[in-house]
């Protein structure tokens, strides 16, 4: 019974990712596009860890940590470009 619940929750996360992609592609300003990409990526991390429990493979969970770290770096790049005009290189 647990495996069916895990599959149903992963479908809910995919629907949330699809709804958020519409904002990331069309959004009025640059800021809410970056916020939508942030939320899409963190939902993708949960999807990956859920599927690694479902497939019964523990090696697939190490992928989740670099995703969470590098998408924070993208936030800092865009914020520094908008505030100062150059990235100081």
């Amino acid at each position: 019974m647990i495996w069916e619940i895990i599959l149903a929750i992963s479908i809910i996360y995919t629907i949330a990712i699809a709804l958020l992609t519409v904002i990331a592609l069309k959004g009025p300003t640059l800021g809410d596009q970056v916020l939508a990409i942030d939320t899409i990526t963190y939902a993708t991390v949960v999807l990956m860890v859920l599927f690694s429990v479902f497939f019964k493979e523990p090696i697939l969970t190490v992928v989740a940590i670099p995703l969470a770290l590098w998408i924070y770096a993208l936030d800092i790049y865009v914020a520094k470009y908008l505030e100062k005009g150059d990235l100081g290189a």
Binding site: T29, L30, G31, V34, L35, D38, Y42, A68, L69, I71, Y72, D75, I76, V78, A79, K80, L82, E83
Partner: peptide
Amino acid sequence: LAPAGSHAIARAIHKSKTA
């Protein structure tokens, strides 16, 4: 990391008068 990143974006958008 998530609150720090969204705070950085919000401060930059307000200071550069984009939204």
